[in-house]
Every structure is written in structure tokens, then in C-alpha cells.
């Protein structure tokens, strides 16, 4: 199954009944799949007139307490940013999928990870965070979609699945029976009228009184703190004795794994820490590795964005270098291998 299709099927399995989209390469298969499947499960797939409409429709559906999602690729996600900020300000759970392509501007259509900053820092105005999940296989495109809905509902906040064009387009086997479902809280806050039997809920992100606004933001950050304490996800690969620790997410983590396996054959002790949640970032875990490893290397399809988070986590204890390709180019295993060898030689 294609990665994009796996996202769509997993969302439907997770009880998502509302999908709003607008076509853009390389994620259009999500819309296509939803258009075919949603009517059959009693859900709604609607192609909005723009990305901006799609995100605001998602907000409306989420406000009613339904599981709702939208998807796009980089330039389209920029268009959605205002809506995402409103959704965060309204404390609404929903899923936003970004199957990244090269940027800035219209950029290109080939795979990229250059929206890392956008996803983890500046996805919209105001003090806000998104839970950001970074799949690395088609299986994870599915499992993390399900997990994103559960996390969003648990913490009453939007979640983003940050994939890339390669993961969206590639095919791998997927097993949909492998997911664990979480117990999620009742949506007592939902603005669904409650059959007129009790007081209406109001969902709002406007607070004219600064003190009131500060209180609402501080309360939200208390929840963010819980996410940071409980929901960090990552994978470690051969880090136990590693001198050089690579940090990579998504498709580049797989390139990194191949490169590590290759350099290990010539005795270079390299390992990988793969963040699965980009926010919350596995900073404690990377910090702990900084006590035993001698150097760090990020592998990214951007000009070096996650490297900032790795440097913060390493806290100046070890050198942190980056191997980056951008514009839609996937770094090759040979290039990464070569970079590791050069680093090992200078240790």
C-alpha cells in the first residue's frame, strides 16, 4: 500500500468521519482514497475551495466533537497556518497531515523535511505547540495516524503527522491490526448542542482581557508539560557503544540506518537515535547519550533545522555536525557513509 493510502485507511479505522482537503502533490492520494472510502463508512470527504477553507472546516467538525482531519503538502500547510493557530487557541483536537515537498515558495514536488521549523516552532501565530509525529515507514504512516488522533483527544490539542513525498508515494506492506488504541476522555466540551438538554458549550480563542488570555495560555502550557513528560517517542539503533550518534527522522533515518550498518562492518561505532515525536523532542535521551558518545551527526533533508534541537539537547558537551541535502534530494547511503567515515577519522 502507498504511504498516503495508509494514512487515509488508518484515519478511517481510527474513527475519523470528516476529511477536508485540497489537492496538492505529493499527498493527493489521501484525498483520492478518502473520496472513495468515506461515503462507504458514513463519513464525509469534502474537497474544499482552498486549503484555508479545508482547515476551517476541520476546525468546525472538531468543535462538534468529531474526529476530523485535513492534509496537504508544504505550501498548502502554510496556507492553513492561521486556522491551525485558531484550532490550538480553541483547544480542539484534530489531525493535520503534511507530506512535505521542497520549498520555500512553490518549491518543488520532490520529498523534503524543510518544514521542521514550521511544524515544531512556527506553525501559526501565538504561544502554541502541536504534537508532531514523524513516521519512517508506511507501517508508521498508519500506526502514527491512529496514535495522533488518540494523542490529540487525550490532550485536547491538534496533532500533526509530518511525513515527506517519498513516504507518501512509496509502497510497503502494512498491517492494520497492530495498533494499540488508547482510552480517550469524553468530549464534554464539544459544541454539539447536547440535544438542548443542558447549557451550550462555547468554543472561543478571543480573550480581550490580557489577564484572562494569559491564564488560558498558561493553562494550555500545563497540558503541554504533561505531553512533554509522558509522550516522547523515539527509536534507538546500535547506540549502546556508539562513538558517533546520528540523529535523523522520517525517511532519512532509514538512509542513516543503512549507512550505520555499512560503517559498522569496518569497525566504526556509529548508532542512530530516531525521534518519532519531533515535539515533544527526545531531548533527555539525546542529553544522556551525550555523556557516552563522542560526536553527533544529524541527517536532514533541509539546510539543518533539527540540528538546533539536537544542539540544545547535547548542551555543548559534544560537537554536533549535520549532513544535509535539500530541494527534494534524498541523501544517498554512500554520502552519509562517507560523512561518518570522515567524522570517525577526525575523532
Amino acid at each position: 500500500m502507498k504511504g498516503n493510502e495508509a494514512i487515509a485507511e488508518a484515519a478511517i479505522n481510527a474513527g475519523c468521519l470528516y476529511y477536508f482537503g485540497y489537492p496538492i502533490t505529493p499527498q493527493t492520494e489521501i484525498s483520492e482514497y478518502m473520496a472513495k472510502r468515506m461515503p462507504k463508512v458514513g463519513g464525509l470527504c469534502l474537497q474544499a475551495e482552498s486549503e484555508i477553507s479545508a482547515i476551517n472546516m476541520t476546525m468546525g467538525a472538531a468543535a462538534s466533537g468529531a474526529r476530523a482531519m485535513t492534509s496537504s503538502s508544504s505550501p498548502g500547510v502554510s496556507l492553513k497556518s492561521e486556522g491551525i493557530s485558531y484550532i490550538a487557541g480553541c483547544d480542539l483536537p484534530c489531525l493535520i497531515v503534511n507530506v512535505q515537498r521542497g520549498g520555500p515558495g512553490l518549491g518543488g514536488i520532490q520529498p523534503s523535511q524543510s518544514d521542521y521549523y514550521q511544524a515544531t516552532r512556527g506553525v501559526g501565530h501565538g504561544d502554541l505547540r502541536l504534537i508532531v509525529l514523524a513516521p519512517s515507514s508506511v507501517q508508521e504512516m498508519a500506526s502514527l495516524t491512529a496514535e495522533a488522533f488518540d494523542l490529540a483527544d487525550t490532550y485536547r490539542m491538534p496533532a500533526m503527522l509530518l511525513a515527506d513525498g517519498a513516504l507518501g508515494q512509496m509502497m510497503e506492506p502494512v498491517d492494520f491490526s497492530l495498533f494499540k488504541k488508547r482510552e480517550v476522555p469524553e468530549k464534554e466540551w464539544a459544541a454539539n448542542g447536547h440535544g438542548g438538554k443542558r447549557k451550550k458549550n462555547i468554543i472561543n480563542s478571543l480573550f480581550i482581557d490580557p489577564q484572562e488570555l494569559e491564564n488560558s495560555v498558561v493553562a494550555r502550557y500545563e497540558r503541554y508539560k504533561k505531553v512533554e513528560e509522558n509522550e516522547v517517542k523515539y527509536e534507538e539503533f546500535m547506540t549502546d557503544d556508539a562513538d558517533i550518534v546520528l540523529v535523523a527522522f522520517g525517511i532519512t533515518a532509514r538512509v542513516a540506518k543503512s549507512a550505520i550498518t555499512a560503517v559498522r562492518e569496518s569497525g566504526i561505532k556509529a548508532g542512530l537515535l530516531r525521534p518519532i515525536t519531533l515535539w515533544p523532542f527526545p531531548k533527555k535521551e539525546i542529553g544522556a547519550l551525550a555523556d557516552r558518545a563522542r560526536a553527533f551527526l544529524t541527517v536532514e533533508m533541509n539546510m539543518g533545522q533539527m540540528i538546533d534541537d539536537v544542539r540544545l539537547a547535547v548542551g555543548g558537551k559534544r560537537p554536533v555536525d549535520g549532513y544535509t541535502r535539500t530541494g527534494g534530494i534524498i541523501p544517498s547511503v554512500d554520502e552519509v557513509e562517507d560523512k561518518i567515515r570522515r567524522m570517525a577519522a577526525s575523532l
Binding site: 502533490t25 505529493p26 517519498a166 508515494q169 512509496m170 510497503e172 525517511i251 543503512s258 534524498i330 544517498s332
Partner: peptide, 29 residues
């Protein structure tokens, strides 16, 4: 299975990469 995607489906060059393994597959490219 990693396809080239984009204008290829309208003509021009087209390619795809397939990796088959007994173990875990790292890079699909």
C-alpha cells in the same frame, strides 16, 4: 517500492526502486 512521481506519468523518463530483503530495510532509495 519507491516510485519516481510527478510529470513522468505524462511521458518522459520513469523509474522506480524496489528493495527486497529478509531483514529490515533501511534506505528505500
Amino acid at each position: 517500492f519507491l516510485p519516481s512521481y510527478g510529470p513522468e506519468m505524462r511521458g518522459g523518463t520513469s523509474n522506480c526502486t524496489v528493495v527486497i530483503s529478509d531483514g529490515e530495510i533501511g534506505s528505500p532509495s
